[in-house]
Design a protein around this nucleic acid. Sequence first.
DNA 1: GTGAAAGCGCTAACAT
DNA 2: ATGTTAGCGCTTTCAC
Lengths: 352, 352
Amino acid sequence: MSTIYDVAKLADVSPKTVSRVLNGEPVVAEETRARVLAAMKQLDYHPNAIAASLKRQRSNIIGFVVPYGSKFVFQDPNMMEQLRGVHDVVTQAGYDLLISVPVNRKDALSELLRLVRNKNVDGVILYPTAGVERIIKELDEKKFKYVTLERYREDQQTNYVRINAVTGVYQATRYLLSQGHRRIGLINKPAAFFNYCCTEDSLVNGYAAALEEAGIPVDQVLIDTGDYTFEGGYQALRKIRKREPELTAVICASDPMAYGAIRAAEELGMNVGRDFLVVAGDNLPLTRKLYPMLPALNNPSFEQGRYAGNMLLTLIREKRDLPGISLDAEFILPSESVVSEGRNSGRIGISS
Amino acid sequence: MSTIYDVAKLADVSPKTVSRVLNGEPVVAEETRARVLAAMKQLDYHPNAIAASLKRQRSNIIGFVVPYGSKFVFQDPNMMEQLRGVHDVVTQAGYDLLISVPVNRKDALSELLRLVRNKNVDGVILYPTAGVERIIKELDEKKFKYVTLERYREDQQTNYVRINAVTGVYQATRYLLSQGHRRIGLINKPAAFFNYCCTEDSLVNGYAAALEEAGIPVDQVLIDTGDYTFEGGYQALRKIRKREPELTAVICASDPMAYGAIRAAEELGMNVGRDFLVVAGDNLPLTRKLYPMLPALNNPSFEQGRYAGNMLLTLIREKRDLPGISLDAEFILPSESVVSEGRNSGRIGISS
DNA sequence: GTGAAAGCGCTAACAT
DNA sequence: ATGTTAGCGCTTTCAC
């Protein structure tokens, strides 16, 4: 492997001039630049990014740390969409993306520190898991750049991109009410799924708001939770239905749970799409294709990733904190859901 | 950030001794080691991996280069499973994984070279796309370590991990025949989807073998191709069914295509699971849950990733080529498919 | 069992 | 517009 010195020698210039050409610094004479370029080509020279990183004290690598478990990440379509959004934005800006998947939940934080302290990553995207506050404090102290997906505490003001489901669920509930549904179920996510500190429950809030508006009291019989999975949705629907045989619709916090609910409903003899409606929460493209007759919630995970990536890049560039962003999930009518091509093709509401 | 010199000074030893402690070299006196460790702790010292990389001339990073397009990768469940397999194996061994997604198809190869030449990655996992031979040649010349997912040419002997669908499709076809099906469709992948050089068509081969065994000629009317997507499967089934109204079953090369075929079949008034069977090719956990009444093919992508990761690690360690590995896809009966929990929980056949 | 010196390949600071 | 020098933080070689 040839080095910058070899090129310099061949082009009869100093290493620094080669470096200038390499980094596109504008002061180099056209004739010199041409000579250097020729020398590079002749020697099949390729700059060593590691050496540059050491000198520059930055790696041009962004870290993406997920809570834990490769199975969890790579099989969660929403997390993949977030990842994809981050990826697209940061690679476009010339960064590489290092995906870090701690084996256990409790490793997530040390893994994060490892990236920051040992690997010189220029910034990280992270999920606020239990105990993250201590880490955030260390990151803040070291002026290390990060963006959280969701807030790590209710009063976090900066450096987060979250999704607000309230509006979407409110619209969904209103729609169902307008269609004559009166006993509407809600399959929510567990109170603290990633151990987020945030206790606010946007699904229940939106649901309750629409019901109250219609003068219908919230009935706990109609609400249950599931762990985001098919099984979770399946079980939750069975429980709700058992408590309320008059159930005619259900809103689910995730698409897999919606699949499970649909399956359970079919087993219970309900005709999904006709006398029973299921509203899914993720807006996976697949869901629209499998169940075009159903309304849905659009969860802009991809956009969330893009916003987070852009925020991190700005953070790195401008060295100051940025106000957090909240993206609104939106309700999608059944008719629309067939027309739209990919995900997140709809408008994105930014509320904060 | 404190350096190895700071630690050395505080512990009253040379930097080299600190380095020895860092790398677990055994010659250090117990008392010295303790002093060094204490100093590290006191200074909150964290070794700079980039500096070590520069000196050592290796990065402890493995590259994973996909053909192109983030949408393509992160939304392809099989590729995610391969990625997950690679990830688990290499991170376990202390490497980080850098995922590289070229924007366009044609960028894939230059992207690969960039990782190899500029980034000091210690090895790469890659897909054999069009024009990859030139790159492989360069990798070979530079003694750079790589493993291909699929072979890049028919006669590639080493450094690949592929999946052989022949057995699975053969078993599936035999099963369908044994159930009395006579007009069995096949929705294949396109001849060269990633522009693999390999022209062998294992799906058709297995399908044809079972038919011939039963004395039934292969009828091209029953075969069509799709691009792995829902739409591809949807269209293909419509075409096949139009050519053959007596169609009673179809084997699909991917799960999304199977979903599309199911949808098309339902629209055509066929009762999927009763008078029409669809065999899906990926074995996504979701498929088994959505359609437990259907038989399936188990595509061991996760294991493929694991094998590829392990092969690459061995390649790096032993500095010699390794014979390629072929994993068999397997046929799964409908009854079994409900019982099994996750993916790839079945036995994996290794045929080469 | 430990240390001194050199250098990996680059770029920043400061010349000229 | 170009060059010189020093040094990023570590590990390697060789000496003691």
